[in-house]
Design a protein around this nucleic acid. Structure first.
Length: 473
RNA sequence: UCCCCGGUAGCUCAGUUGGUUAGAGCGGGUGACUGUUAAUCACUAGGUCCGCGGUUCGAGUCCGUGCCGGGGAGCCA
């Protein structure tokens, strides 16, 4: 690389003077040949949404032999004078003094990424090439900016990023399917006297899995560092075939000490708004593209959401709203059963037409570690201090709760959930030694990216989606 | 896991009640064209109609089955 090499983003930002000599390196999107021996190369380098036009004329030594054969996907290094564009459609362009092929496209007739509209289904089959499209370039930049904003937000607010283990011996919630981690010879498994697989012979000397949540581990750090979060890969072996589930996804889990459910909802709202603001500010071109081609409301709904306070509603009240809505649901809304997708959609997309935070769910349908509420008037049963943030079009984007900090209550809840107290003795220790009220939530990063970009399928919100039956690439 | 829908050229799709040699646009190649913007125009190459089995004189088309993809539901983030 020489000193005059610029990214397209830098050039468009005015980092180089007009009339100066510059070099760009990138991949050709399209080539248009014009009258009088002149070719226009639309070059992309991923640095921003825009491409840069390189004008190559037939005075170039390799014009006929090489330039005229450059197709979509060719890697090139273009050197020349940065000039104000003589044509319409772009402010500046490079009048090339050399267009050097770096990597040719072997079979242009079968190169999958063509300058045309592709279905997302097809692009998933060429996941290694889809970042070369407008859409996936934009998703990639937005995902990056959102991830940076996550860390920046927490850092600015005094949170510590805790790297909780990916390999774990415990199922964090006593539910959900886990991926086994094992080095045992599958064709020759060691057995105990009773015939069971002898995991004491396995790598860790016990049964191990990929984590489904860093929550329990991060709670320990919360009860020392006060404000903490995790942001890392998470694995669920559930056979979910939907537009909003992945077997491998990235989850953000803040955990705050000396805090209750209200504090948590406030955090969720402030946090989401910060991320949305950052993306709107830092990715205006990408967001404009999503609004134009993917989801017309993409920008507007983020702006509205940033301005409006989140709607908060008790589960009990939500059920009441659903029952009085007069709408016919496939599943009748009833206190004590979880909200169905159709119920969530009604609340977010019709009744409130905004993200909705539902709080205080029935004890029976939630996890053991959620804090038991005192029973209120009008409630048919006990509730826990849980909260879900429901977003229009996506459904549950955040799920969280205040944690049960009282040792006796937690112990009895664990027993009711048939959880082995021995295995969780360290977790119970946290309630024995300096316990405090604390709360946290989990946010699926890909669901966030889906919501921001308007991409309808979560498999398009992560570079290489892992789903049942498919771990390609 | 359950319920629907789909699989035809590199891509996006059309293909009638089963009937001759399966088509179009884009992309590719060749050529034309006074700086183009998904450039335009002409010519051209390109097919295991997802696999297997069946019905039929005859199957891209009908039936069975398998595989793959999509949408919805459940589980959840």
């Amino acid at each position: 690389m020489t000193a005059s090499v610029y990214s397209i983003r830098e050039l468009l930002a005015g980092k180089a003077e007009l009339q100066s000599q510059v070099t760009i390196q990138g991949w050709i999107r399209t080539r248009r040949d014009s009258k009088a021996g002149l070719s226009f190369l639309q070059v992309s380098d991923g640095s921003c949404f825009a491409t840069l036009q390189v004008v190559a004329d037939n005075q170039l030594a390799n014009y006929a032999d090489e330039v005229l054969h450059m197709t979509s996907g060719c890697a090139v290094e273009c050197h020349g004078t940065l000039v104000e564009s003589q044509g319409r459609g772009q402010s500046m362009e490079i009048q090339a003094s050399s267009v050097k092929p770096i990597g040719w496209v072997e079979n242009p007739d079968t190169y999958p990424v063509q300058p045309k509209r592709h279905t997302f289904e097809f692009l998933r089959e060429v996941a290694h090439l889809r970042p070369r499209t407008n859409t996936f370039g934009a998703i990639t930049r937005v995902r990056h900016v959102a991830a940076q904003a996550v860390h920046r937000y927490f850092h600015e607010q005094g949170y510590y990023w805790i790297n909780t283990p990916l390999i774990t011996a415990s199922d964090a919630e006593g539910a959900g399917q886990l991926f086994r981690v094992s080095t045992l010879d599958q064709l020759n498994l060691p057995r105990t006297d009773s015939g069971a697989i002898d995991y004491s012979k396995d790598f860790f000397g016990q049964e191990t899995f990929l984590t489904v949540s860093g929550q329990l581990n991060v709670e320990a750090y919360c009860l020392a560092m006060s404000k903490v979060y995790t942001f890392g890969p998470t694995f669920r072996a559930e056979n979910s075939n939907t537009t909003r589930h992945l077997a491998e996804f990235w989850m953000i889990e803040p955990e705050i000490a000396f805090a209750d459910l209200d504090d948590l909802v406030t955090l969720a709202e402030d946090f989401l708004k910060y991320i949305f603001r950052a993306v709107l500010q830092e990715c205006p071109d990408d967001m404009a593209f999503f609004a134009q081609r993917i989801e017309p409301q993409a920008i507007q709904r983020l702006e509205t959401l940033i301005e409006q306070p989140f709607q908060r509603v008790d589960y009990t009240e939500a059920v009441d709203i659903l029952q009085k809505s007069g709408k016919k649901f496939d599943f009748k809304p009833e206190w004590g059963i979880d909200l169905q997708t159709e119920h969530e959609r009604f609340l977010t997309e019709q009744h409130f037409n905004a993200p909705v935070v539902v709080v205080n769910y029935p004890d029976e349908i939630k996890a053991f570690y959620m804090r038991l509420n005192d029973q209120q008037d009008g409630e048919p049963g006990r509730t826990v201090a849980a909260m879900d943030v429901l977003a229009p079009g996506i459904g549950e984007i955040i799920g969280g709760s205040q944690r049960e900090e009282r040792l006796d209550v937690l112990t009895s809840r664990m027993q009711a959930h048939d959880i082995d107290l021995e295995q969780y003795s360290w977790y119970l220790d946290l309630r024995r030694y300096g316990t405090v009220p604390h709360a946290g939530f989990g946010l699926g990063f890909e669901r966030l990216v889906s919501y921001i970009t308007g991409m309808a399928n979560i498999r398009d919100a992560i570079p290489y989606p892992r789903v049942p039956g498919n771990a390609g690439f």
